[in-house]
């Protein structure tokens, strides 16, 4: 006669333990796998970005490190002198002039909008905030179309540097407005209240207390806008005409650095392609230096305040 196992809880417990440990093992395996995939993702992200930077230096360094790149006008290479590409002095000046005019118009207006949006809670300000937020994401080529329709055709200026500056400036406006608004909002309310409590007028408080306190944010935003503007190709492509001559006049056909990359990248002369790489490297260096400087400056300012 066999005895029935009256108490089989031991077996059940054993069974459960086995199943549980299998589940835990499976979960841990899945977890390890997916975490490994996250590492793969970061490698996949770094690969193309690293490749861009490496290629910039390989192909572009020779141009950037030669003096002729900055001092000479571009030349058209021929079969007999395939390496005679000259420099890009006109495009450097052109880009500088476009940026200068764009900043001249966009900085005061952009900061004005930002301060207005931060300090007013009228219905107009609410609508304006929405418009700013929407315009930040507008594709840059639309600003080119806008500048063409308004400045080139309607105002009758024709293709010129000024139209390019208008397109770039319009592009910068919402960026400046948004960053200024955030910077002003980030100023502690107590600071503003202290100014008002001392009997200062609203405008005095705003100009003498709030704006100086917000200056790091405003400048960082401006630098962000500038570094975006330097490399913008599409809007200038549509309206500045493109010229090989040296000019800084607002009414002339102009040339800009990114536009030259666009035109020279598909050239059949290797030297001209190398020059395009050189311009690309030059822009990337300028953008990196600008944003790093802004960052370091903002950090040191913040520490100073504490």
């Amino acid at each position: 006669m066999t005895t029935l196992p009256l108490d089989n809880s031991h077996h059940i417990r054993e069974h459960l333990r086995e199943r549980a440990s299998a589940t835990v093992k499976r979960r841990q395996f899945v977890s390890r796998l997916m975490i490994a995939l996250c590492w793969v993702a970061i490698a996949l992200a770094a690969l193309p970005l690293g490749d861009v930077i490496i290629n910039l230096f390989i192909h572009g360094w020779a141009s950037v490190s030669s003096w002729a790149f900055y001092s000479q006008l571009p030349a058209q290479p021929t079969l007999f002198s395939p390496d005679a590409v000259g420099g890009v002095s006109n495009a450097i000046v052109g880009s500088g002039v476009i940026l200068g005019y764009a900043l001249l118009g966009a900085l005061p207006i952009g900061i004005g909008i930002g301060v207005y949006n931060a300090e007013s809670d009228s219905r107009f300000a609410i609508v304006l905030r929405l418009v700013v937020a929407t315009m930040v994401g507008a594709p840059s080529i639309l600003m080119g179309l806008f500048a063409f329709g308004l400045v080139v055709v309607q105002f009758g200026f024709g293709f010129c540097i000024l139209a390019g500056a208008f397109a770039i400036g319009t592009m910068m406006l919402p960026v400046l407005a948004a960053s200024t608004e955030i910077a002003v909002r980030n100023v502690p309310a107590t600071l503003r209240e202290a100014g008002l409590a001392l009997g200062a007028k609203k405008s005095t408080t705003s100009l003498r207390i709030v704006l100086p306190a917000a200056i790091t944010g405003i400048v960082s935003g401006a630098i962000l806008a500038i570094s975006r503007a330097i490399g913008e190709t599409a809007p200038v492509l549509l309206v500045i005409g493109g010229s090989q001559a040296f000019t800084w006049k607002a009414g002339d056909f102009g040339q800009a650095l990114p536009l030259m990359i666009y035109q020279d990248a598909s050239s059949s002369y290797p030297a001209q392609r190398a020059q395009a790489w050189g311009i690309a490297l030059f822009i990337v260096i300028v953008v990196f230096v600008l944003s790093l400087t802004a960052r370091i400056w903002a950090n040191s300012k913040q520490k100073e305040r504490r």
């Binding site: 861009v52 570094s227 330097i230 490399g231 190709t233 990248a265 395009a276 690309a280 990337v284 953008v287």
Partner: peptide, 11 residues
Amino acid sequence: AAVPSVVYGIW
């Protein structure tokens, strides 16, 4: 994120 698109274009 600040690298201009034309640079990705030439690459």
